[in-house]
Design a binder for these strands. Structure first.
Lengths: 194, 194
DNA sequence: GTCTATATCCAGATAGAC
DNA sequence: GTCTATCTGGATATAGAC
């Protein structure tokens, strides 16, 4: 039969994580404090330890949630049958995901919280998301490491510049289609240079 | 006549900044503490206030030093007379500078220290460095904002991926020449697409 | 210029009553 | 499961003696 107690516990955990996201968006991932977090959910900071073993465990849960959100969107996207168009759609989705929430991007893709590393289970989710992009490249015959690395670099560069130098605008984000053109023209095996 | 007192003061300031760089490299820019810094130079943390008005003033001095280092290297470089080759050399220099010291890169080009913004004087140095790249692009007829923005995005992307995912290796950095090829082929006005 | 002493505030985490 | 109380340690910064 249903375990009402553990259901309630899970609901509270979810509520705590939701409040944590809000704080992380306001102060940045490194600025999260258990005091503030407790206050948000109407608890003393110490009581959070009934739900999470440590502050790092909270970060880890946020990391996993962020990855799952990305995986969900990738799964929900209806990609074109044309591999080139599908890749383009996939990269647009990554850029949109990464640029819409700087704090989440920082938590998932940069190393900005001193001492925090995601658990293997959580990290596996991030790898899974990247595997999607890898497969889309492979469908175009782009299977060398440098193909993926150059692709991730271009995407990461647009997002990094956007966040650092124009956080409220779209100065770099709007270049995404041009950047993808550039990338695909360059990587296309048929017109390989050098 | 020489002011031995102020010479000594300047020497101590320089020593403090050197120790600050070491700490920042070890702990990241956000991890710098005045206690540790004082200990490194054989002082109590409070005594540092004789040399700098605040912790932010120390960050600002580091920021300015980092910019000057980059400007010095740009000034010392002997660039080719061929504008395309000169740009290539310039971008290689940026990538080398940014990748050799992650902490300095973070301090200069990312917004990672809560509450810190460089003073106008210091920021002007960063702008000056970027103007160099802008001029090199202009020498190739690339004067639109998107030309510079795409260029900085590619450079920033390589460096960001390098630091975040392969901090001790060269997995992305070694792609710099290929990335520059890609960029220049794409931006070259003579073969403009779209 | 450097020290001691101190102010003020914050952090993460644990013990134990209820 | 939540609380009070507490531990331990950290931070930046100021006042004033020497």
């Amino acid at each position: 039969m249903r375990d009402r107690r553990s259901e309630r516990n899970a609901a509270t955990r979810a509520e705590i994580l939701e409040a944590a996201w809000a704080l992380v968006r306001e102060e940045g991932p490194a600025g999260l404090s258990l005091r503030d977090l407790g206050r948000r959910v109407g608890m003393r900071a110490q009581s959070l330890y009934s739900y999470f073993d440590s502050k790092h465990a909270i970060y880890d849960a946020l990391f996993a949630q962020g990855c799952r959100e990305l995986l969900d969107r990738l799964a929900a996207a209806r990609f074109s049958d044309d591999p080139a168009e599908a890749l383009r759609q996939g990269l647009r989705l990554w850029v949109a995901f990464a640029s819409e929430d700087p704090a989440r991007y920082q938590l998932l893709f940069q190393r900005t919280i001193p001492g925090f590393e995601p658990s293997p289970q959580s990290y596996a989710l991030a790898v899974e998301a990247l595997d999607g992009a890898k497969a889309q490249l492979a469908a175009l015959g782009l299977t060398e490491p440098r193909h993926l690395d150059l692709t991730t670099a271009v995407v990461a560069g647009l997002v990094a510049q956007q966040h650092a130098n124009d956080p409220t605008g779209d100065r770099w984000i709007r270049l995404v289609d041009e950047a993808i053109d550039m990338l695909m023209d360059h990587l296309k095996p048929r017109r390989r240079r050098r």
